[in-house]
Nucleic acid binder design. Structure first.
Lengths: 165, 165
DNA sequence: CCTTCAACGTTTGTCCCGCTAACGTTTATG
DNA sequence: CATAAACGTTAGCGGGACAAACGTTGAAGG
């Protein structure tokens, strides 16, 4: 890039490696093989990929979670969504707002229980969800690219078992 | 609280499941098997265990990283530590301060390059590191408890490969 | 020698995330 | 009825990752 005399990019050269980039290169041996650390690093990378991928669609992961929940069990109250997605009800408010702004979801008071808002996915929302499905699938692919099909299945099963305490 | 008369603990009963607790119980099928999500959840759990375990020793994970680096390559400048541990130099300041307060580390100006501080691990620091080693080992054990020895090795190798892009 | 530039340590601030607390409203319960 | 519980919402905290800027010190080159 720009071989000419034009020195536009001083190039900091300072730099502490961002965690996201730092595979393990210089890391102390004690840390290099630590499962908890490997998990943290891979998860960080995964999270970065997901966030970036979704950002391109003007979405965040919570959006996906909510839309997925709505797709699976139709219209749901916010509290219900909170339970199913694990999003705190405090944070859910903003998520619903954002989804509503984008027309992916509608918030209507529940006539039968006036405490509740019933959240309903719109047609646009469903299209959006399908787009996100594809994005997510691509990301999983990229994330586990170096693994064989069998290894991928193995990984998810190992992780799954760890989560069941 | 404590109004004597048998107040059986109000028990919020409200509750959105904390991410840390939420295995997958009610999660939408779309999310349930998503590798990026499984990674995030297990990593979150791991992180929680590690943070709590280290907190009991009045330590944080950065402390461990720095001590490990110092143990491996003797005294090092802060910038050097930053590179090896992946901690941003901005944040490293506080970490060194904390370690210094606890007497695990000494910060001395480098006479040969007066820009640098040379960080040296003390004897107490080394003892501390060994304590942390044990704590960490226990945590890995707990974390991967449901996995066989072979599966544990498999998991770390899969994760390792994913990290090498 | 003097200027320029890079590295160093430090301070300050930003953004996001998981999570808590509190509050007003509405519905159940007894 | 009174009281408790669930609901949606606002505000805030603590921590982690990261950027920007600054003063100081060293290295390199004209």
């Amino acid at each position: 890039m720009s071989t000419e005399s034009g020195r536009p990019a001083p190039e900091p050269a300072d730099e502490t490696a961002p965690v996201s980039e730092m595979g393990d290169r210089e890391a102390p041996a004690r840390l290099r093989g630590l499962p908890s650390r490997l998990l943290a690093l891979t998860a960080a990378r995964a999270d970065r990929l997901v966030s970036e991928g979704l950002a391109e669609q003007d979405a965040r992961k919570w959006h996906y979670a909510v839309l997925a929940a709505l797709d699976e069990h139709g219209p749901t109250s916010q509290a219900g969504l909170s339970r199913r997605t694990g999003i705190y009800r405090s944070d859910l408010v903003a998520v619903i707002n954002e989804l509503a702004e984008r027309g992916h979801v509608e918030r209507t008071p529940d006539p039968e229980d006036r405490r509740r808002n019933v959240i309903t996915m719109t047609a646009r929302g469903r299209e959006h969800l399908e787009r996100l499905d594809r994005v997510l699938a691509d990301i999983q692919e990229e994330l586990m690219e170096p693994l064989s099909k069998a290894e991928r299945a193995l990984l998810t099963s190992l992780l799954g078992r760890m989560l069941d305490h």
